[in-house]
Each structure stands twice: as structure tokens, then as C-alpha cells.
Simulated assay, not measured.
Amino acid sequence: MEEQLRKLSESSGNQNFDKLTFSEKHREGVWKRIGKKEKSPSCLLKDVLQLLIHEKTGYELSVLLRARGNSAFDENEGAIYTFLHELEKKEWIQSSWHGKQSKCYVITSRGKKILKREEKKSAGTEISLSELLEG
């Protein structure tokens, strides 16, 4: 692993990224498109179902959602459990207890169908890196 990291470091040192420049207008355009906009409720649903392909606790899920830029539960972290309970009532996810204090959630086959539908709906609306760089 150390050898791979060393090679990566050496190869990235050969790049001339310091010569890249972006106009202020270009920077503003990028930040407008990826910056502070709120994600839609269907994006939240899609993000949650994608993350629950593998079993996670509510806390793990909230951390991963935040890492994806989804701030739906930042103001009220406990609301994620209400949201998960609603998904569980619809049978899109299921939960199980691991030990006495750890409740985990995972997507069901019904939830996978909903996820496919949400992914089809959002296909083509996601911003690609080339779109951002072209301005």
C-alpha cells in the first residue's frame, strides 16, 4: 500500500495543475450549479435507498447523506428516524436490532423497485463534470 501511495504521489507531482486558471464568472457558475441548492424530496428518497443497499444504522445513514451533500436532516437529526419509520411502513426498507442499542436498516425488494423508478426519473438531470467545466 505504501508503494502505491508513493507512486501516486510521484505521478501527481508531474502534473501542471497549478497552471489551470478559472475566471470569476466560471467559478460562480460552478458554485451555482453544485453549491447551496437544496435537494428535492425524491433525491432524498433516492439517496437513502441507495445507501441502504447495505445495512446501516440511522447514524451511519445521516453521516453518509451529509457526505453526499444532502442536508435534509441537519437541522433536526432525529427526523431521520421518522423518515425511516415511514419507509418501513411502506415496506421499502426493513429494520432489525443488533444488540440492545443498535437498530439497522436495509432496503427490501419493494424498495429496490422504488429505487429503480427514482433513478430513472433523475437520469439525465444530474450534472456531469464536463458540463461544469464547460460552463
Rank of each mutant, 00 (worst) to 15 (best):
S71R: 12
A72F: 09
F73E: 07
F73C: 08
D74K: 09
D74I: 09
E75I: 08
E75N: 15
N76D: 15
N76A: 09
E77S: 15
E77M: 14
E77C: 11
E77H: 13
G78I: 06
A79I: 07
I80E: 10
I80G: 07
T82N: 14
T82R: 14
T82C: 08
F83G: 02
F83L: 02
F83T: 00
F83S: 00
L84H: 03
H85M: 12
H85S: 13
L87G: 01
E88L: 08
K89E: 14
K89S: 15
K89Q: 15
K89I: 11
E91Q: 08
E91A: 04
E91S: 03
E91W: 00
W92T: 03
W92G: 01
I93C: 02
I93N: 02
Q94H: 03
Q94G: 02
S95N: 02
S95M: 01
S95Y: 01
S95K: 02
S95P: 03
S96L: 09
W97I: 06
W97A: 10
W97G: 05
W97M: 13
H98Y: 14
H98I: 11
H98T: 12
H98K: 14
G99C: 10
K100S: 14
K100E: 05
Q101S: 14
Q101R: 12
S102P: 00
S102F: 04
S102E: 12
S102V: 10
K103M: 08
K103N: 06
K103E: 10
C104K: 10
C104W: 03
C104F: 03
C104H: 13
Y105D: 01
Y105T: 00
Y105W: 15
Y105Q: 01
Y105R: 05
V106N: 06
V106D: 03
V106A: 10
V106S: 11
V106P: 03
I107R: 00
T108R: 05
S109I: 10
R110L: 10
R110P: 04
R110Y: 11
G111I: 01
K112H: 07
K112A: 02
K112L: 02
K112T: 03
K113L: 14
K113A: 15
K113G: 08
I114T: 05
I114K: 11
I114C: 04
L115N: 01
L115R: 01
R117T: 12
R117P: 01
R117H: 12
R117L: 12
E118Q: 11
E119C: 06
K120C: 05
K120F: 07
K120G: 02
K121S: 06
K121D: 08
S122P: 00
S122M: 11
A123P: 04
A123K: 05
G124K: 06
G124M: 04
T125D: 12
T125Y: 05
T125N: 14
T125P: 06
E126T: 15
E126W: 09
E126I: 10
I127D: 09
I127K: 09
I127S: 08
I127P: 05
S128W: 07
S128H: 11
S128A: 04
S128G: 08
S128E: 11
S128C: 04
L129T: 14
L129C: 10
L129N: 10
L129F: 13
L129M: 13
S130E: 15
S130N: 13
S130Y: 06
E131D: 13
E131G: 05
E131K: 07
E131P: 01
L132Y: 09
